[in-house]
Design a protein around this nucleic acid. Structure first.
Length: 730
DNA sequence: GTACGTTCATTTTTT
DNA sequence: ATGAACGTAC
């Protein structure tokens, strides 16, 4: 077997790759080739007669897993890798373990994986059952507490033991009911996958031994983002052979809100006494200027891993470019222009360019403007394909047909399309289900048919409608048993008149119909490991992978991606956008020092994705929910030295004043606002592009004046920030 | 009881 | 933009 991956490794990388016996901890900076080291090591092991099946490689994100598979695939030049369940995320690996050994658990092999949407729907139902206020017991927050407890391997009972406040007592009740509902629906949430896999291995010694025998070598990428359960699972899997090889960078830890635990790295050496620790501080990715900028940002953190990253490149590279725009549309337009310029004047391809942002909502403006400018792009995550209403509806039908206990799906589609089963009937169904420990479907069936037995009564109209719905389900079930999945979907659309519903009730019906077509083709083309189990495998991939938008690598596209998802990736040119206080750092981390440091690491991750060109973009005003807010520059921008930046630097106007005059964690003033004369409604003004107009209104905002101006001819009414607009009085 | 229009509040990151 | 909550018409 010809293996080329081991060429061109430096001394330390080589040492890491060839360190075979016992535990190894690789602390590596950005761009040091972490994934490359892992894949090279796998290749090297294979070269030394270890079967690829004896190696388990666990990653944190799907992207990382598929990247790794792709690389291994290239190195080994053969394709069993594609289907290997032992190279993947922790979650998919655990789901695999659980399904393989479902007979040891009290669960059906085809358990469902409840995603965030399903989880929230369950929590809301529980709150309804228990008569608790959604405003106080915010579902997302409750889920956070439950997740935290689970990832500490605490049981529900243990959670219940340590409660002092009335609030926590209710959280405990919610948690208990939540878990019961999941069990009843034969479903697991993301944390259950990990927890159950852990207990499965922990309590079945023979099983554990067999997996220790099976997986002789264990690799973990992005180790800084593992949580407690994941670490415990890793310990079990490496229990016998102790060939555990982990790679991580504490400065890139950005998932603490998901209970990622940095102490896993710190304790590693204690837990594995013979650990070989290798540091990789040389950066092979970025130019010196980019590295310098990243260092200047990260070095302001108190909790910093102390080390010096140095570049493998000789030249300093391009200066970092700042982009300043009026609002998010102009930001997207300027970046679109810059992208076109780069494509025209350099060798850079669209696939070498990424636009990154803090929150998914920020992708909207880019989608709009790039579509308009015919710049092909690929949206990673975002309002994901599988989160779309019409897709969720159809998947809910499929899920319910396969598993009648799936209450989340039942409640989603019981009246979608509307079929005369309104809120009060649904309330009765869930109430009856709660009181008699029934699934919602059973509850509905009994309410509609044997009314004598229940305290709750339905009148004839809703009863008839429920039975109509049950008939539809029955027919679909029969259909599902003797036809292909695309026929089932066609049948669903047919019998529910979903198309009519969609056209008359939802926005953008054409787009939604296209999405349904895409769903059908992606199911049809889905490559199942076990073809007989195709639909279940597909549903699992929908919950766990959720990433189809990013699989299309056949055409040249620019990438739109959140900073979180960008981890582990690299691009020739990176546009970091939304560098405003409140966006990055996000406003919700303002009063928490730890979270603020994590936001800083997030920017660090973003900066270090760039190889050659880095753009830092911010706006003066960002729209949210109808409203629009004046934004100050991100406080992090002030940490990047002037000398590294070309364009308008936030530091420049303040050049002579000492930096300490600037209060880091307090409200920062927009220093870029020019001194301006008064301007009032009714005055005549001139704009550089739109020409002459009349001020309709002039409203003072934090640091500026918001102008609404009506222009001559057909240019219409436009809004500006005075300091940015170039508007002059005439 | 249901459908449908209006109003009001919401406001991160992901497996 | 989206969903819950409320009011109104059938």
């Amino acid at each position: 077997m010809q293996i080329n991956a081991l060429n061109n490794l430096n001394e330390n990388q080589n040492k890491a790759v060839k360190h075979i016996d016992g535990p190894a901890l690789i602390i590596a900076g950005p761009g040091s080739g972490k994934t490359r080291v892992i894949t090279s090591r796998i290749a090297w092991l294979v070269q030394n007669n270890i079967s690829i099946h004896q190696i388990a490689a666990l990653t944190f994100t799907n992207k990382a897993a598929s990247e790794m598979k792709e690389r291994i695939f290239k190195i080994l030049d053969s394709n069993p890798v594609k289907y290997l369940p032992n190279i993947g995320t922790f979650h998919s690996f655990c789901a695999y373990l659980l399904r393989e050994n479902s007979e040891l658990l009290a669960v059906d092999k085809n358990f469902l994986i409840y995603d965030n949407y399903d989880q929230i729907s369950v929590i809301k139902r529980v709150l309804n059952d228990l008569n608790l206020d959604v405003k106080i017991y915010k579902p997302q927050m409750i889920l956070g507490l439950i997740s935290k407890s689970k990832s500490q391997l605490e049981t529900v009972e243990e959670f219940g033991k340590n409660i002092s406040t009335a609030f926590n007592k209710n959280v405990y009740e919610i948690y208990k009911n939540y878990q019961e509902k999941l069990t009843q629906s034969n479903a697991m949430d993301f944390d259950d996958l990990l927890v159950n896999a852990y207990f499965l291995l922990k309590t079945n010694i023979n099983l554990l031994l067999s997996y220790n025998e099976k997986y002789k070598y264990l690799m973990i990428d992005e180790f800084q983002d593992t949580n407690f359960v994941q670490y415990k699972i890793a310990r079990l899997l490496s229990n016998e052979h102790k060939n555990i090889f982990v790679v991580g960078d504490p400065d890139q830890s950005i998932y603490s809100w998901r209970n990622a635990d940095i102490t896993n790295i710190l304790n590693f050496k204690t837990d594995y006494p013979n650990t070989n620790v290798i540091y990789l501080n040389q950066n092979y990715r970025s130019s010196q200027n980019i590295i310098d900028a990243s260092q200047s940002v990260i070095s302001e953190n108190q909790n910093k891993y102390d080390r010096k990253i140095f570049s493998a490149q000789n030249s300093e590279g391009n200066l970092i470019v700042t982009v300043e725009s009026y609002d998010e549309i102009e930001e997207a337009e300027k970046i679109a222009g810059e992208v076109n310029k780069i494509i025209k004047s350099t060798q850079t391809k669209l696939s070498d360019i990424a636009v990154m942002y803090r929150t998914n909502a920020q992708s909207r403006a880019f989608e709009q403007v790039f579509s308009l400018n015919q710049i092909p792009f690929q949206l990673v995550g975002g309002t994901r394909f599988y989160q779309r209403q019409e897709i969720k509806d159809l998947l809910a039908y499929i899920r319910l047909v396969l598993n009648l206990n799936d209450d989340s799906s039942f409640l989603r589609i019981i009246n979608t399309p509307t079929r005369g089963i309104g809120k009060s009937t649904v309330d009765k169904i869930t109430q009856n289900a709660y009181m008699n420990s029934l699934s919602c479907l059973e509850s509905a069936k009994s309410l509609a048919n044997d009314q004598s037995n229940n305290e709750i009564n339905l009148s004839t109209g809703p009863s008839k409608n429920i039975n109509m719905f049950l008939d539809i389900l029955n027919n679909l079930q029969i259909k599902s048993e003797n036809s292909e999945i695309d026929e089932l979907i066609a049948e669903i659309i047919e019998t529910t008149k979903y198309r009519d519903y969609l056209i008359s009730n939802l926005s953008n019906p054409e787009e939604r119909l296209e999405n349904i077509e895409e769903l059908i083709s992606s199911i049809t083309n889905f490559d199942a490991i076990d073809p007989k189990n195709k639909i279940n495998e597909f549903l699992e991939s929908v919950s766990l992978i959720n990433d189809v938008d990013s699989i299309q690598d056949d055409t040249e596209r620019l990438t739109l991606i959140t900073l979180h998802q960008s981890k582990g990736l690299e691009y020739d040119t990176v546009f970091l956008t939304g560098l405003e206080d409140g966006t990055l750092p996000h406003i919700l981390s303002f009063d928490n020092e730890m979270e603020m440091e994590e936001e800083r690491r997030l920017l660090y991750v973003g900066i270090t994705r760039a190889k050659q060109r880095l753009y830092l973009s911010r706006v003066f005003k960002r729209g949210g929910w109808g409203k629009s807010e004046v934004k100050s520059p991100s406080r992090f921008l002030y940490d990047i030295p002037d000398s590294l930046v070309v364009g308008h630097n936030v530091n420049k106007p303040d050049k002579n004043s000492p930096k300490s005059s600037f209060k880091r964690y307090s409200n920062i003033k927009n220093t870029d606002v020019k001194k301006k004369p008064e301007i009032n409604a009714g005055e005549k003004v001139k704009h550089p592009t739109y020409g002459e107009g009349i001020v309709i209104s002039a409203v003072n905002s934090t640091d500026d004046i918001e102008l609404t101006i009506a222009f001559d001819q057909n240019k219409g009414i436009k809004k500006f920030l005075y300091s940015m607009s170039g508007i002059i009085k005439i």
